[in-house]
């Protein structure tokens, strides 16, 4: 195919040079689309207004331990080792089983219930669990959902800071 109907300038878009340019454009578009798709599952999809910083949540829970339902949506082993006091394990939201477990856990709750999601399995930009968990709860109509921003991991950003932890029995 040497000509392209959607090009406005035939001299630019026809011929081998034109094909090369368009192939390069197509490649760029593909890369951008792939990046966008990856971003769609990234924790970066959670709006900044919904984030809560570790120090703020620590103080909040000290003042009101039962004010928010805290759900851990990551690894069971990490949860068993150490978790936020009073937090409930909901399962890794990046898996179908984890999503269903989370759905089952929150279904009976009032949609106005204050909920804090956290994971901390890995660096924020690589966390596979936060975005699906956030999307599920928002999709179910929960209006007071926040997400704990953990930049590195739970050990570095919560445990090492000396904030309270509990271990599973």
């Amino acid at each position: 195919m040497r000509t392209f109907a959607f090009c406005s300038r035939r001299t630019f878009c026809s011929g081998r040079a034109g094909e090369s340019v368009l192939r390069a454009c197509a490649a760029i578009v593909t890369v951008v689309l792939c990046a966008t798709a990856a971003q769609a599952q990234s924790a970066f999809t959670v709006p900044a207004s919904a984030l809560v910083q570790p120090a703020a949540l620590h103080h909040e829970l000290e003042a009101s331990p039962h004010g928010s339902l805290v759900l851990q949506v990551g690894s069971r082993m990490l949860f068993d080792e150490d978790h936020i006091p009073g937090a409930v394990y909901a399962g890794p939201a990046s898996t179908p089983e984890g999503i269903e477990a989370l759905r089952a856990r929150v279904t009976p709750l009032a949609r106005s219930r204050a909920i804090v999601l956290y994971c901390g399995c890995c660096p924020w930009d690589h966390c596979p669990n936060i975005a699906p968990a956030w999307s599920l709860l928002r999709g179910m109509g929960f209006t007071h959902v926040r997400v704990l921003f953990i930049a590195h991991n739970f050990g570095t950003d919560w445990v090492s800071k000396g904030y309270g932890v509990e271990r599973s029995q």
Binding site: M77, E81, D82, G120, C121, P123, H152, G155
Partner: peptide, 28 residues
């Protein structure tokens, strides 16, 4: 995980020398 001081996020990598001594811990 607890034997190794707690693994509260991955990856965590330890370097152990030939005598079985931990010489490095790399996290994230």
């Amino acid at each position: 995980a607890e034997q190794y001081g707690g693994v509260l996020g991955v990856p965590v990598t330890f370097l152990i020398d030939r005598r079985g001594i931990i010489r490095g811990r790399f996290e994230g």
